[in-house]
């Protein structure tokens, strides 16, 4: 729930930021402000290298449907603006099959001289936050604690786990008559938003009860981010330009979810806590898609 609140706050801040800058752009003196709107569909593939179950739970093994590769489709709405020449601020809201704008990306790019044709160099800072489903992590206990009622909570154990990544990338851009190209790649840092979960157990034909509480940590990990954007201009009317937008991006990292595990047996006072740091799993996110854009 806290993660959801953070997302909401971030969206609100993004909205306030873009709104205030937008107002500033509208009252600017140089008259060079441009805005862009875009919509595109993309396919996303998330790969991770699952690890064999050990004596402690590894939440990474329960991301998605438990398979090494997960795929999904997204509808992306892009709003961007250039408040001053060379600077671009853009926000992307992505909607998945649940039709909830659960993912966002905010980026700030500095590309001096990008209104001129030819090659340009600059940099880009990007913050992306997207949800990942953590499904049926209680299977670990059902398999390990077979002599107990391994989970007294019979609901489908699913929660949203937000993954946030901040990256800083050098950008190489080419602006032609009909085609513009941007390529960026660079390092970043990714964290999973912390969460807590509890498993309640009881012995059949016995009074024995215990609870296992997991409180995860942000577990930061180094990330290699890369993205490519291609704009193909199809029409230009006065100051309005529109066309096709092609986008592809990737995030590569070794991820883990560290946590504190507290086992309470019989009573709350009888507790033992330990920190668990599962091994890092290679994880990659690849996304590619295309759509339309309008600059005005």
């Amino acid at each position: 729930m806290n993660s959801l609140k953070n997302i909401t706050v971030a969206f609100a801040l993004a909205g306030m930021l873009t709104t205030s800058l937008g107002l500033k752009a509208q009252i600017g003196k140089n008259g060079n402000e441009t805005f862009s709107l875009g919509v595109h569909f993309s396919g996303r593939s998330i790969f991770r290298n699952p690890q064999p179950a050990g004596s402690s739970i590894d939440f990474m093994n329960y991301l998605g449907d438990g398979k090494p590769v997960q795929t999904c489709g997204l509808i992306n709405l892009v709003f961007g603006m250039n408040p001053v020449p060379g600077w671009t601020i853009s926000t992307t809201l992505s909607i998945n099959s649940s039709m909830a704008p659960g993912q966002m990306q905010i980026s700030v790019m500095n590309l001096p001289g990008d209104t001129l044709q030819g090659w340009h160099l600059g940099w880009k800072t990007s913050l992306v936050m997207f949800p990942r489903y953590l499904n049926e992590f209680n299977r670990f206990h059902i398999e390990r604690d077979s002599l107990l009622f391994a989970d007294l909570n019979h609901n489908y154990r699913q929660r949203l786990l937000y993954d946030a990544c901040l990256s800083v990338m050098p950008v190489a851009a080419f602006r032609g008559e009909k085609i513009s190209l941007r390529v960026a790649a660079g390092p970043g840092i990714a964290v999973f938003m912390p969460f807590s979960e509890r498993i309640e157990q009881k012995k059949p034909d016995g009074n024995f009860r215990r609870t296992i509480t997991y409180e995860t940590e942000a577990s930061p990990a180094a990330v290699l981010a890369a993205e490519t954007e291609v704009y193909i201009s199809l029409f230009r009317v006065r100051h309005t330009e529109g066309g096709l937008l092609l986008r592809a991006g990737s995030l590569l990292s070794y991820r883990q979810i560290r946590y504190r595990e507290t086992v309470r047996t019989w009573t709350a006072e009888n507790a033992e806590t330990r920190r668990v740091s599962p091994g890092r799993q290679f994880s990659s996110l690849t996304e590619a898609g295309g759509g339309f854009y309008v600059n005005f």
Partner: peptide, 9 residues
């Protein structure tokens, strides 16, 4: 009020 699932002394 108690921690659900556990006993108390």
């Amino acid at each position: 009020g108690t921690i659900s699932g556990l006993y108390q002394s």
